[in-house]
Design a protein around this nucleic acid. Structure first.
Length: 315
DNA sequence: CATCAGGGCCCTG
DNA sequence: CAGGGCCCTGAT
């Protein structure tokens, strides 16, 4: 499906702003719906039932941030549509986030201080809707990076439209509910294993309109957690990813999966169950603080491989 | 070749 | 609340 450029605009994020660390998270597994190189991010979006391509480019500095956004689609877009889409972009990537308090509180912290210096201006956030992130969360479960990548690509191959814009082809998420006519057996044949049932049921619930992302966003964290845990296939490991990346909650830390613990143990002075207690020192920013440390580690690894980290990442 | 743990979750007892 | 089963993959 070929898309044409329909819009070019400018977004001015709050300062300080780190374009690359915001638009590219090396800790996330790579997927065929985006492309990144320094100063530039390409991303497909399924928004209000339209297939969109977007290219974000940094045209400012850390202190005077400016991002251009090009939007591609098949047909012309109304200004209302563009406005709502941009608003959503600003939310998802946290472009209006105010980091001042966080930096003031922790810039002198032994571990966090140097990280803040290196990652200055990075926003937490993620490009996907709740539905899309649920799919990702499920293909992450109980398997290696390689397998997650493979399952995600197989799903794109079967259900995601392939979009072409500005000379690149990228896969796009499908409309929630599209799996109605797909049987669990069909999904199983894509080597999703027991996850087929989770994906099927979640897609069903979106089709039925039982999940309202907008409404959930406006509710408090405890309510969000309770509601998300009701979803079939969402447990403690998946729910915190969702709360953090989709709902932008930073004041909680209740779960560390085994592989994460191994990595934290290399960075923080305590191990095991004591880690969660240790993170209390980061107060209402505990999840954000750990995100900073985590992403910093992966960025460093990207620049100059860290051998112990390479061992912990099961390729 | 066979066996088994793994970046969870659900369900049962 | 502990523990078995589940899909697949790759390590041993």
């Amino acid at each position: 499906m070929k898309l044409k450029r329909q819009y070019l605009g400018v977004i001015t994020p709050t300062a300080p702003f780190n374009f690359d660390a915001t638009f590219h998270k090396p800790a996330h597994f790579p997927s065929g719906d985006n492309f990144w190189q320094p100063g530039e991010r390409w991303q497909t979006f399924r928004w209000q039932s339209k297939n969109l391509g977007a290219i974000f480019r940094s045209v400012g500095t850390t202190q005077k941030p400016k991002v251009t956004v090009e939007i591609f689609s098949q047909k012309k877009l109304t200004s209302d549509f563009v406005e709502s889409f941009i608003k959503e972009i600003v939310y998802r990537y946290n472009l209006n986030f105010d980091l001042t308090d966080f930096y003031e509180e922790f810039t002198k912290d032994n571990i966090l201080g140097p990280v803040i210096k290196r990652m200055r201006g990075m926003r937490p956030g993620h490009q996907d809707s709740l539905y899309e992130y649920l799919i990702i969360g499920i293909v992450l479960q109980n398997c290696t990076v390689g397998r997650s990548i493979q399952m995600m690509q197989t799903l794109f191959d079967h259900y995601g439209p392939l979009l072409e814009f500005n000379g690149k082809r990228l896969w796009c998420f499908w409309e929630p509910g599209i799996l109605e006519k797909v049987s669990e057996e069909d999904l199983r044949s894509l080597k999703l294993g027991y996850r087929a049932k989770f994906i099927k049921r979640i897609d069903d619930q979106f089709k039925e309109g039982l999940i309202n992302e907008e409404k959930l966003r406006s509710q408090d964290m405890q309510t969000q957690m309770k509601e998300l845990l009701k979803l079939y296939g969402v447990g403690p490991a998946t729910v915190w990813y969702l709360l953090f990346d989709v709902f932008h909650q930073y004041d909680f830390f209740n779960h560390i999966s085994p592989w994460e613990e191994k990595i934290y143990s290399h960075v923080f002075p305590v191990t095991g169950d004591r880690l969660i207690k240790y993170f209390d020192r980061f107060g209402r920013y505990k999840q954000l603080a750990v995100h900073y440390v985590w992403e910093d580690l992966w960025w460093q690894h990207k620049k100059k491989p860290i051998s112990w980290l390479a061992k912990e990442i099961r390729a």
